[in-house]
């Protein structure tokens, strides 16, 4: 049932990429527990605007957990304390009355801060550009039912493809590794006959790009899997390693 809570927020403020940032503290009273976390930030911003102060910059768009635009480290967890949700689906009912909530941007060399809580995740796009596709052009493809794919394989590919590219996996990792993200795409395409043809080259190219962009190595702490809002399994990392190894052996 709806009730309201009073909270204290410690929010990372940083004017631009070069500025030195710092935490600022804000108090908010009477927040309905049915409010989403981002709506709570809207309320705070509205208050700041009324006080003629600059509102907090944060990324968000679809607000239904699918675009991957929202980020935020909340009380030390990417996307906050709730399980299997993005920040935009997190609701204030997950917090206690009187609680102090710490809000930070993703902290990662590969995702530099743009302003306040906004970071640059262009590195993930660059990894996909390195090989996260099937090399076909528009038109001239076979009938969609020409190749049968066993349902369990298609379902597993779908589970991998559910990745929203939000960056929580790398943000959660103590090594700043992007392996869960990379493996989800490699795995989706390696499972399907359409993507198998380029599987080895794809794994090699995407891993090379990931290393080049300054992401760390995977040491199997499984923090990525625990924090992933779409529950992507680290079994995909195992498949990526197999594909990568096969590619290296062939070299």
């Amino acid at each position: 049932m709806e009730k309201s809570i009073n909270i204290t927020l410690k929010v990372w403020r940083q004017k631009d990429a070069k500025a030195k940032g710092a935490f600022e503290t804000y108090k908010l009273d009477g927040i309905s527990t049915d409010t989403s976390f981002l709506e709570m930030l809207d309320i705070l911003n509205e208050k700041l605007i009324t006080e003629r102060k600059e509102p907090i910059a944060f990324d968000h768009d679809c607000r239904e957990g699918i675009c991957g635009m929202c980020s935020l480290y909340i009380n030390g967890h990417p996307h906050g304390p709730d399980e299997d949700v993005t920040t935009c689906q997190l609701h204030m009912r997950k917090f206690k009355d009187g609680e102090t909530i710490t809000v930070e941007p993703w902290r990662l060399a590969a995702f530099p801060v743009i302003k306040d809580l906004m970071v640059n995740r262009n590195a993930y796009d660059q990894i996909i550009q390195a090989g996260g596709y099937v090399s076909i052009n528009t038109g001239g493809v076979p009938d969609a039912n020409a190749i049968a794919i066993p349902k369990p394989i298609a379902d597993e590919a779908m589970d991998a493809a559910a990745c929203i590219g939000c960056g929580a996996c790398a943000a959660a990792c103590k090594n700043g590794s992007a392996m869960l993200f990379v493996s989800a795409k490699v795995s989706q395409l390696a499972l399907l006959p359409q993507g198998k043809i380029e599987a080895a080259a794809r794994a090699k190219a995407m891993v090379a790009k990931m290393d080049e962009l300054g992401f760390g190595n995977c040491t199997n702490t499984r923090a990525c899997e625990a924090e992933c809002p779409k529950s992507i399994s680290i079994s995909h990392i195992a498949r990526l390693n197999r594909e990568f190894l096969c590619a290296k052996i062939k070299d």
């Binding site: 596709y133 493809v141 969609a144 349902k151 590919a157 493809a161 395409l189 399907l192 359409q194 993507g195």
Partner: peptide
Amino acid sequence: VAQGVPFAR
């Protein structure tokens, strides 16, 4: 399908 979109089967 050719792009690898995992439609339900």
